[in-house]
Amino acid sequence: MGEFWVNRDETTINQKTRYTEIHVPDGKPDVLQQIEHGVLQLVAQVNAIGYAIPGINESHLYQYRHLGDAVNKTDNLVYNPRLDSLQTDGRTSGTPDDRWAFTNRTPHMNYGTAISLAAASRALKDYNPELSKEALRVARFIWDDEHNHQANPEEQTYSGRFSNPEFMKSIECRAAFELWRSTDYEDYKTRMNELLPTLLEQFNRNASVIAQMIPFMDNAFKKQVRPLVEAYAGELAEVDKENPYGVRISTAGWAGNRNIVQACITNYLLHRSYPELINPEYIYRGLNYLYGCHPCHNLSFVSGVGAQPKKVAYGSNRADFSFIPGGVVPGIRILKPDFPENREDYPFLWSENEYVIDLAASYIYLVNAVNSLLK
């Protein structure tokens, strides 16, 4: 399916009956079923609230610290005020919802959701045509609504990169790109071209976005980008001087496996268009690092993968000193001034040992990219 034709089928998933069983194929590619699951959630959010929201969380401590399958977090009952429960003060009140939705509106969240839905609409076109159409409709609705929306003072704003004008232009440009690919509507391409100069001015920050665009642009654009990729390749060589592992290890407060995987994916996308400039070694090193070629110890940061995989982590199952196969942890954190740490005796350091879903998805992409290069 898609770029790598990942048709693996190891799981039974039934959205209507809300039933899932691992290790039991159902004749459908698992990746498409995962995309379908995410699209159903995003579409439901926008249809219910009118825009994309940051998240939906459990509302009680007992749910947060649950053990076992994630289904234990919810009673699967829609809130009903007639179902009374006894409170600690002796009064009764309606059974509380077991989910809290955070409904603050932000432009970057809206554009990010439009990007996901527009791209997903292409993936689902043959698998689930109706959901594909709905995903694209919602993506276009978000685009139009964001361009016509007048923010009010009560809307929450973000500091840092989420309020950075260059970042916002980058994410709007990517939304225009994905919508153009899915609709062939010229207005999206026009807006994309208007925003591209800003992206090219900060090539390193936007390299992954630009790399995705190159195969769909004309030769003039590819020639325009080439000197920027040459400079980028020169900077990759400088990373070799930082440490023996050939990747950029984060020195911030959160360990850097996500950045390492994303950098290798960017290198793959650029290598695809400029194989003579980007050495594939800068792609392979990411997996080498994850699988044990890193400081502190030689464990694989991917639970269940590798000769000595990570078995102490913090995931949706709060059982102490447990792991979830396929989970990827943040990795090595540098304690000041220069001490690398990834604890095996304490899983609750989020910055070292917390599973993050988008990192697992990026890891899967990188594995398939490497497989495609090695054939």
Rank of each mutant, 00 (worst) to 15 (best):
G50L: 00
Y127M: 04
G306P: 06
K169E: 07
L299R: 12
P275A: 00
P215T: 00
I142M: 03
V78H: 09
G50D: 01
G90H: 00
P29I: 00
V46E: 09
V209T: 10
V329K: 06
H149C: 01
L277N: 01
V138G: 01
L42S: 09
L373K: 00
L335S: 11
Y79L: 11
R140K: 13
R140N: 05
D89I: 02
A231M: 13
I332E: 02
H108Q: 08
N206I: 11
S300W: 04
R18W: 11
Q150H: 15
S116L: 10
G304Q: 06
D338E: 13
S93F: 08
F221E: 07
H37E: 12
L83G: 03
L179W: 03
R181C: 02
E230L: 08
E155M: 03
L136T: 00
G253K: 12
F102S: 12
T88A: 10
W254S: 08
D84L: 14
V209K: 05
K169W: 09
N76C: 11
D320H: 04
I13K: 11
A139I: 03
A360C: 05
Y51D: 02
E36D: 06
L32H: 05
E21D: 14
P280N: 04
Q34R: 15
P244G: 07
P96F: 05
C173H: 08
T157R: 15
I260Q: 07
G256L: 09
N80D: 09
R272L: 03
P275Q: 00
E201W: 12
Y111I: 01
L196K: 12
Q41A: 14
I49H: 05
A307T: 14
A176T: 11
T11R: 07
L83K: 13
L335K: 13
P25H: 10
G2N: 10
Y127I: 02
A307K: 15
A101W: 07
T11M: 06
V31F: 09
R105V: 04
Y363T: 07
E238F: 09
A48R: 12
P325F: 02
T95H: 07
G331P: 06
V46M: 06
I13W: 12
D30M: 06
K375E: 08
N148T: 14
N288P: 09
T106D: 04
L287E: 07
P330R: 03
R258L: 11
E344M: 05
M109P: 05
N152Q: 15
I210W: 04
Q262W: 08
K16L: 12
W100I: 15
K133G: 07
A211Q: 02
A176P: 05
R91N: 04
R205G: 12
I357H: 10
P309M: 04
A252F: 12
L179Y: 00
G50N: 01
V138T: 05
I278P: 03
E238C: 06
I332R: 01
S121T: 02
Y268M: 00
A207N: 05
N76Y: 14
